[in-house]
Amino acid sequence: MEITPDTSGYMIAGYIITFLTMCIYVFSIYRRNKNLKQDLETLKSLDTKKTKKK
């Protein structure tokens, strides 16, 4: 039986990348959500202004 090679470096790299990718994705959803909510507020205020003018 040969000695088990030490490949823990690869494992650590793999798990770091996994968690990093998922974090980036979750963060991107959060950011897009925030931006859209901001847009929505702006649009709503514009909308009320427009209806008031009329």
């Binding site: 039986m1 088990t4 490949t7 823990s8 690869y10 793999g14 798990y15």
Partner: peptide, 15 residues
């Protein structure tokens, strides 16, 4: 458990 031939890198397999 650690896989004997490949070592720790095998743990990547689950994810």
């Amino acid at each position: 458990p650690t896989e004997l031939v490949m070592g720790d890198v095998q743990r990547v397999f689950y994810f």
